[in-house]
Design a protein around this nucleic acid. Sequence first.
DNA 1: TGCCAGGAAGCCG
DNA 2: CGGCTTCATGGC
Length: 275
Amino acid sequence: MRIRNKNFDIKQIAESGQCFRMDPISENKHSLIAFDRYIELEQVEEDLIDISCSKTDYEFIWKDYFDLDFDYGSIVGKLNSDSDEFLKAASSFGRGIRILRQDPFETLISFIISQNKNIPSIKVCIERICETYGNRMKDNKSGRDYYTFPTPIVLAEAKKEDLRALKLGYRDEYIIGAARAVAVGDIDLNALKICSHDEAVKALKSIKGIGDKVANCISLFGLHHIEAFPIDVWMKRVLSEYYQDKFDPEKYSGYAGIVQQYMFYYIRHIHGVSN
DNA sequence: TGCCAGGAAGCCG
DNA sequence: CGGCTTCATGGC
């Protein structure tokens, strides 16, 4: 399936820190595991992408996953006509980034793992969880084996000693607790998609192991509340070095999360980080 | 070897 | 409320 879009850069999305199961497999080509499926994406040209999926799967799954009905170009354009020089450069540099509509449960667990870890380390942990608790699948087109992300019920029944062997550190009991909360219905992730960002964050923070930053990441990347504004160590760097801690996300009310992604991606580039 | 990573909980004042 | 310490693990 071939898609033409001016604001759709696979490498940028893969390196934007919002998803952890998108990996380079060759020059201009990435693999992605999501929703129990495996696809490959090739950046043919700057605004042209090939996805290894049927037209039906594109229409019903991937178009939504990549948020392709939303016009990111209008956001980039708006930021480029603004007086904020840092955001002008950041949005221009990361203009191919999009906010994915990922599976809420996978996002929830992934960002609990993310705390106090770098991105390569987060990926390793997630793969270990999938290999241990997910289902082994085979993609016929590429011949590749892969593992799905486990369901809430399976993870909720995991033993702490078994998780300990996966080297998740102190996060293992957070993961079991969160999976149980979802499995028994204490947390209804689909309901949190419909309610407001503030309500979602409040509900998420009732889970042990989820603080303000992780809750905002889940809200932004798993529930698609694009007004969320997660502040991690990189964002703290941006806000202090370029804004003297006076940046107000309210200026970008309604889409601050997109602005945040441009900032995050750009500051890491400035500091020479590429994973 | 000490420091850092898409932090959060527990405790103290 | 704000600041400090501790919590596993891996990479540099």
